[in-house]
Simulated assay, not measured.
Amino acid sequence: MVISTEPAWGDAVEQFVKEYEDAVVYADMDQETVLHEGRARVLGNGWVELPTGRLLSPDAVHHIDTRTG
């Protein structure tokens, strides 16, 4: 039996990642609770990765608005 050391999904997972250069991550619909401002990555599993390496749960994030400037 041969077992690969490569992940089964390979690079396919990266196709589901969204990166935002300038965004605001909100915890509520009314946009009163800001969880993060700046760069953010939404991973394929719904978690939001911040530049510090911290992850925000999909349950904690209501929505993300992008800013253009």
Rank of each mutant, 00 (worst) to 15 (best):
M1W: 15
V2E: 10
V2T: 12
S4G: 03
P7E: 05
P7A: 04
P7H: 05
W9G: 02
W9E: 09
W9N: 08
G10V: 13
D11P: 07
A12P: 08
A12L: 14
A12S: 13
V13Q: 15
Q15L: 11
Q15I: 04
Q15H: 13
V17L: 11
V17D: 09
V17R: 15
V17T: 14
K18Q: 09
E19Y: 14
Y20R: 02
E21Q: 03
E21S: 08
A23Q: 00
A23P: 01
A23I: 02
A23H: 00
V24A: 10
V24W: 00
V24N: 02
V25A: 01
Y26M: 01
A27I: 01
A27H: 01
D28G: 03
D30F: 10
Q31Y: 12
T33I: 11
T33A: 05
V34F: 05
H36W: 02
E37K: 12
G38T: 02
G38P: 00
R39Y: 06
R39G: 02
A40E: 02
G44M: 07
G44Y: 11
G44E: 08
N45H: 10
G46H: 14
G46F: 14
G46I: 11
V48W: 15
V48D: 12
P51H: 12
G53K: 15
R54C: 02
R54E: 02
L55P: 00
L56T: 04
L56C: 06
S57F: 11
D59S: 10
A60Y: 12
H62M: 03
H62W: 06
H63D: 03
H63G: 04
H63Q: 10
H63Y: 10
D65W: 12
T66G: 05
T66C: 03
T68V: 11
T68H: 13
T68G: 08
T68L: 09
G69T: 14
